[in-house]
C-alpha cells in the first residue's frame, strides 16, 4: 500500500513537473529534436496549441512527420525570436490594431528573418507554417514571396520560380487579350 502510494506521489510529481515545463520538444521528419518555448508555440501555432491543450505532446519529441529538420529549425527559431522580442504593442492589441491597420507589415526582425532564407527554405517554411496553423509566420513568408513577384510580368515570375507554363497557345492568346493591361505598359 505504502509503496503504491509512494509511486502514485512520484507519478503525480512527474506529471506536475511535465505540466510545469516551459518548453516542448518537437521532432522533424528526419528525426532531429528541437526545443521551443511552450508559451510561444501555443500562442503562434493553432496546431501546437491544440496538441498542448489536448495533452498529445510527447516529452521525447512530438513527431511532426510532415516537416523536415531545416524547416522545423526555422519554425523553432521564429517562435523563440518571437518569445524574446518584446511583445510589441501591435501584437498585444492585435484585435484592435488589425482593424486600424488592415495590412500589418512584417516587423523589422521578421523581415530579416525571411530575407536570409534561400528559396527552398522559404517555400518549405511556408508549408510548415501552413501545416502548423501559424497564421503570422504564414503571413510573413507569403509577404516575402509576394515581394518577389511584385511588378513582374508572368514570364519573369515563371523564370524566377521555375514554374511551367501549362497554358495552350489558344488560352495564352485569350489571356493576353483579357489581361495584357496588367503586365504590359500598353
Amino acid at each position: 500500500m505504502e509503496v503504491d502510494k509512494g509511486k502514485g506521489e512520484a507519478e503525480e510529481t512527474r506529471k506536475v513537473a511535465e505540466a510545469d515545463r516551459d518548453t516542448v520538444t518537437l521532432k522533424s521528419s528526419d528525426g532531429k529534436l528541437f526545443e521551443v518555448s511552450k508559451e510561444a508555440a501555443a500562442r503562434l501555432s493553432t496546431v501546437l496549441a491544440g496538441m498542448i491543450a489536448g495533452g498529445s505532446i510527447d516529452d521525447n519529441g512530438t513527431d511532426l512527420k510532415q516537416i523536415g529538420s531545416e524547416a522545423l529549425e526555422n519554425v523553432v527559431d521564429y517562435c523563440n525570436k518571437h518569445a524574446n522580442s518584446i511583445p510589441s504593442a501591435a501584437l498585444i492589441s492585435s484585435s484592435i490594431s488589425f482593424n486600424t491597420a488592415p495590412f500589418k507589415e512584417p516587423e523589422e526582425w521578421e523581415r530579416k528573418f525571411v530575407d536570409r532564407l534561400s528559396h527552398d527554405a522559404l517555400f518549405d517554411l511556408v508549408e510548415a507554417a501552413n501545416f502548423l496553423g501559424m497564421e503570422r509566420l504564414l503571413d510573413v513568408t507569403c509577404h516575402k514571396i509576394s515581394e518577389m513577384m511584385k511588378g513582374k510580368s508572368p514570364d519573369q515570375i515563371r523564370e524566377v520560380f521555375n514554374i511551367k507554363n501549362d497554358y495552350t497557345k489558344e488560352e495564352l492568346e485569350e489571356i493576353r487579350q483579357e489581361l495584357a493591361w496588367a503586365f504590359y505598359d500598353d
Partner: peptide, 13 residues
C-alpha cells in the same frame, strides 16, 4: 495589377 498578372502564370494561378 500584379495580382492579375499573376493569374497569367499558369492554369493553377
Amino acid at each position: 495589377r500584379s495580382a492579375v498578372a499573376a493569374s497569367a502564370i499558369s492554369r493553377r494561378w
